[in-house]
Design a protein around this nucleic acid. Structure first.
Lengths: 124, 124, 124, 124
DNA sequence: GTGGTCTAGACCACT
DNA sequence: GTGGTCTAGACCACG
């Protein structure tokens, strides 16, 4: 299980947490029936306030990706893998599309953009 | 001169306006000494509140890209092209890098990402 | 002895258990001197955590409805029937009053509400 | 426009606020295109923290009942009346059904319950 | 002025 | 220990 959170990003923290949980389920890092980390544990791990994590969890619950097990925590639902794999493609695709749309509106040529993409995809 | 604004994007409107002005200067759509449109004119053209446009112009002035010509409006400075071409690469590059970083952290393979990018770059 | 528990209700489980014991005593299903089921037995019967049952029993003891018989369990007290018949009317009345108060504040007419009540009272 | 909030109720405040807005729209007290009161205004009117009101508004936005007008407030959507009239019946019906189900499980006869209902419906 | 996000910390129900 | 609700108050983006 892996979390990649950037507190300086314009994307709200709770939204980033939602995405990361989705990605973990989509890639099999979290499986059906698993308990996801508690709000307090994850909060201290990410140095984020537990309330912020809780907000992310409520969103995930609303999506049907996790369900509360009273007094135990939040459990990955049977429907989660299907939902999350779909969501992953949508979220990743949308953000790339948005960035490329901006790139093209900037006057850079498709070739320059392709080079930029390649340099990024290889580097980090 | 061309503006591509998306009011539904998570990126603040004033930030999008700043970028679009920078892109117009970088690509030669606006040249040194040109007057950029007034706050009201641009506001009504983009259906954005004039205060929001004013905030963007303030930011551009702070960057040294435009300067006030008393009684005439905001004028593109001599330094602007150099600044804007640099800014364009940085802004476009950063946003692509961010989107790709997310894509890679999502568990998709580099090959899948490359395909996604190609499909987006070709479509619209 | 009969228990009607809904784990999805907004009403706390322990509160539902308290009510159900009260109703059983009020209606004569449990009589003075009877032993109520043990915390573990009732817990496994209702698939509820024993601590939750224990909390309900604590509340019932505080109300004077049951008392501990050392080594035997919890026994229905002589005062219980009187207390429980009063409590039953209060609890049922309060909850109905609350639901109807909401119904009336919703803008539905008394006639529409009466119909709703009739349809519910006849159906299940 | 009318709000009936009970801070002592077991129902969460934000949920009560959601219901009350729905009821107001369903009964025509709020019409399509109206701005609902701001989080701060409604918060101080109900002596509830603005964050609690905001949580209710987010739920309403998620339901498609209101939409944000950036910098102006939350506006009643065209779909709202239909949604709210449906929701009103469901919410009111559910709560009455729950209360009556409890009443019947308490051992009271249908006739006693009907009398209770009538006495409540006539009194306040 | 508007709502959105975040931190902080309290209390509660439940296991 | 778990999550849910609420209060409190800060800062931000937008009009």
């Amino acid at each position: 299980m892996w979390f990649d959170i950037d507190p300086k990003s314009a994307i709200p923290l709770f939204e980033q947490i939602v995405s990361q949980v989705i990605f973990n389920i989509a890639s099999g890092g979290l499986e059906v029936g698993d308990l996801i980390p508690s709000v307090r544990k994850l909060g201290s791990q990410l140095t984020v306030h537990p309330n912020t994590v809780a907000k992310a969890f409520q969103e995930l619950e609303r999506m049907g990706v996790v369900a509360e097990r009273r007094g135990r925590g939040m459990e990955v639902t049977p429907d989660a893998p299907k939902i999350c794999q779909l969501q992953r493609r949508q979220r990743v695709g949308n953000r790339i599309a948005e960035a490329l749309r901006e790139a093209m509106s900037s006057g850079l040529s498709p070739e320059e953009i392709r080079q930029l993409v390649e340099s990024v995809i290889r580097s980090p």
